Computed example of a mutant assay.
Amino acid sequence: MSAKYQVFVSSTYMDLSGERDSVIKAILEMGHIPVGMEMFSAADEEQWNVIKKQIDQSDYYIVIVAHRYGSCDATGLSYTEKEYDYAVSQGVPALGFVVDDDISWPKDKSDTDRATLKKLKVFKEKVKLKHVSFWKNGEDLYGRCSIALMKAFNTYPREGWVRASQVQDAAAAKEIVRLSSENASLRERLHGFEIAADVEVAIEKTIVTMRANKRKISVWKKTSTDWDEGKEITLYQLFEVLAPEMQVELALPEISRFTATHALSVSAKELRASWPTPRNVIRSLLADLAALGCVAPSNKRKPVADKEEYWALSDFGVKLLARMRRRRLERLESLTKIENKAEKDVKTDA
């Protein structure tokens, strides 16, 4: 969409009419819209609000300065400087074009009053604080203005003006982009729901498989000289015990001890210190749980001196544990409601 920029051109009037025409010509030939001071009565206070509105609507501001300060308002501030200050205060990119002091200039186009010259000097120094070009004549000003505006368009892009038809086309294109983005978002959400549904199915299948697979795990007690026959538990029961501890990670010897004390319900005081359950059996159980996608070797970095083997829950294992814990909480809630109802019925009967 091609935008046309409105450029406000400010200068003193009679002494710079030719130079201002050069700037306006440059703006028009670039395909943009100049707003010239000749449209207004610069010294008319009633026009100041109109001028401010034009500056507000402009995309860029140009000030041309030579050797006259210009007509002033009641406070002694020239309207040219007043416009410049307002444009800067409103954030309109301001481009200054100050005549080269080494160029000969007609005396009838120059101020001679000492106080006025002082104001003019201060104003020039203010303009030089921002983007400024020094020109020698109208032709030189024309070229410098074209170059400066082109740089400003690229460096400080503005909203500009466009045809209504272009705006409508742009609005349609914007709506297409919005709908495409919304469609992509909906597809992503649908894909997420599909994945979630697949996970739910996988969790249910895994729970069924874990409950169907039983293992008998031996234990070695302090008072024993060999393995004692342990009790039989399901993979589901084992995972239910180990999973909360494996949310971060758990070393293999700890898994052995935790299996004996929590899964087999043997007091820690009765067990020998190291490997109270068989190492090969523990590895086999972890391999089964890994085959179901519930656990995996931990990938956390360890000190070189740490030679232990660590295991942790997989992402699927975390979801499976959450489901199991949620079901337990729901069962407890149901039991609590039943007990409360029974108590209430007993009191009613009494």
Rank of each mutant, 00 (worst) to 15 (best):
Arg189His: 08
Ile338Cys: 09
Val35Ile: 14
Arg328Gly: 04
Thr277His: 07
Tyr236Ala: 13
Val127Cys: 07
Gly192Met: 07
Leu117Glu: 03
Glu139Ile: 03
Trp227Asn: 09
Ala273Tyr: 03
Gly91Thr: 09
Tyr5Ile: 03
Arg20Cys: 04
Gly143Ala: 13
Lys151Leu: 12
Glu245Cys: 07
Thr261Arg: 03
Glu29Pro: 01
Ala172Gly: 03
Ala148Val: 06
Val132Asn: 10
Ile176Tyr: 08
Ser17Val: 03
Glu204Gln: 14
Asp102Asn: 10
Lys222Pro: 02
Asp108Leu: 09
Val219Gly: 00
Ala94Ile: 07
Val7Phe: 05
Leu250His: 08
Thr277Lys: 03
Pro297Gly: 06
Tyr236Met: 10
Val304Gln: 13
Arg20Gln: 02
Asp56Lys: 14
Ala94His: 08
Asp73Thr: 04
Asp198Asn: 07
Cys72Gln: 14
Ile27Tyr: 12
Ile203Ala: 10
Leu16Met: 05
Val199Cys: 02
Arg114Ser: 06
Met14Glu: 14
Gln237Lys: 11
Asn137Pro: 01
Phe97Arg: 01
Glu182Gly: 03
Leu190Thr: 00
Thr206Val: 09
Arg283Thr: 13
Pro93Phe: 12
Asp169Lys: 12
Ala263Tyr: 01
Ser267Phe: 01
Val304Cys: 04
Phe97Asn: 02
Met324Ala: 05
Gln168Pro: 01
Met324Val: 13
Gly143Ser: 13
Gly70Tyr: 00
Gly160Gln: 06
Val127Leu: 15
Ala197Gly: 08
Arg279Thr: 10
Thr112Asn: 10
Leu238Phe: 05
Leu16Trp: 02
Leu179Ile: 11
Glu200Asp: 11
Lys269Pro: 01
Glu229Pro: 00
Lys302Trp: 09
Leu321Thr: 08
Asp345Gln: 14
Ile55His: 06
Glu343Lys: 15
Leu250Tyr: 11
Val50Asn: 12
Asn340Lys: 15
Met246Lys: 07
Lys118His: 01
Asp345Glu: 15
Gln237Ile: 05
Asp228Glu: 13
Val98Gln: 08
Leu77Arg: 05
Ala296Tyr: 05
Val266Asp: 00
Tyr142Gly: 02
Ile338Ser: 12
Val318Tyr: 03
Ala287Cys: 05
Lys300Phe: 14
Leu129Trp: 02
Ala66Asn: 06
Lys221Ile: 09
Lys121Cys: 01
Ser218Leu: 05
Arg326His: 05
Pro303Glu: 09
Lys25Tyr: 05
Val266Leu: 00
Asp15Phe: 04
Asp59Leu: 06
Ser334Gly: 06
Gln90Arg: 15
Thr155Lys: 13
Trp105His: 08
